[in-house]
Nucleic acid binder design. Sequence first.
DNA 1: GGGGACCTGTCAGAGAACCGTCAGAGCGGC
DNA 2: GCCGCTCTGACGGTTCTCTGACAGGTCCCC
Lengths: 227, 227
Amino acid sequence: MTRILVVEDNPDLAYGLRNNLEIEGYDVDVVEDGTQGLARARVGGPDLIILDLMLPGMDGYRVLRALRDEGRRMPILILTARGEEADKVRGLRLGADDYVTKPFGVLELLARVEALLRRTAPPGDGAGAPEQFGAVEVIPASRTVLRDGRPVPLTPKEFDLLVALLRRCGAVATRMELLTEVWGYSAAVLSRTVDTHVAELRRKLEADPAAPQHILTVRKAGYRLEK
Amino acid sequence: MTRILVVEDNPDLAYGLRNNLEIEGYDVDVVEDGTQGLARARVGGPDLIILDLMLPGMDGYRVLRALRDEGRRMPILILTARGEEADKVRGLRLGADDYVTKPFGVLELLARVEALLRRTAPPGDGAGAPEQFGAVEVIPASRTVLRDGRPVPLTPKEFDLLVALLRRCGAVATRMELLTEVWGYSAAVLSRTVDTHVAELRRKLEADPAAPQHILTVRKAGYRLEK
DNA sequence: GGGGACCTGTCAGAGAACCGTCAGAGCGGC
DNA sequence: GCCGCTCTGACGGTTCTCTGACAGGTCCCC
């Protein structure tokens, strides 16, 4: 999950930020002064930092400069009441990626956070990080699947089907959902197609395809992947 | 040199931007409407775009969306009089990287441009460090490729294609991504072009072109380079 | 517990999709 | 004009996908 570090000494504002960011699905960490902020940024490895400039102890500029001097490249968004152009220029020049002045709109801030993370995300694929179940590892970026660390050759359809199952991991995926997602059909074409491909996946990925441990049949409903 | 495309219909503002950006050492290209902006962005391959929203013809939102839909990833900074939060959110969500409202300070704008370019610039340095896979060494600085220490003559397209594959090393590069990055096409052009050039690369770089070890085909998806 | 209805597993082959290859045309530089 | 680079369309081989039939399993009702 994407981790965001908020360095902000105003408790109300910090509370609001935490709430809104968590609603968006981020993992949020809040600290109240510059020294703590620097420490947390060093050990926590956040994916993004929202940094106030006016802080007790070490001020935001110094935190910013320290992090950049250490070669840390995570995006940093400055959030401050200092709206003078000179301040903005200074912050951006010191290595901040964005500069938002109080008072600000929460939606705008969230959109800016999203834009920064989008820009920082690996160029290859936003499709997803590698996932694992049993002895099987699925790497979306390279469309590779490893079993016991060794590559298993999957056909395109098999791979897409596996990813679709993985996305619903733990829940039932109906044949219709799978057809829609993997095949792009909208019709309720009932056929043995899905079953055939599931069987093939089992043959390639399960230790005992006849008694699958991960790719399970849910009678009358569909299939379910268990880790 | 870093190229910046300015899409702005107000002549005074466009003039001012060009001046200031050129003083900073950028190579500036100015067009006055959305249609031209889109065209210039496609063929010119600017490193950054400054985009007005209110434009004659095609508006800025549509230009932005069209570019992102084609998979183009250059940073885009929206510069507009529309300061409503909803506008900002919309622009950023559509794939803009920054949003500045008029009236704005030139110094701030320049600092934001610099911040965006800093974020986009490749980590090492401009040209990129030499990279290696198998018996092949790629030296971007001199556009040279060595195999077993001996130079291999690559045509310009072949070299660019190789670099594009190398940038995504280990991940799948779709034909569309490659067309966009190497050819600057608006994709949708389905042809054997990419395949032909990949075949040529294999012939020149693989020990056994019929059974490639590094430049791999990922069926239904694209190509992948493995070290 | 037995029988039947229904559901899923399995298989093999026909057809389609996809990619590698090649030859040639267009284009621009020397 | 010659030559090298680039792109395109056609062809063919290979791999993948889907289908239908049958077999086996499971569940429910009696």
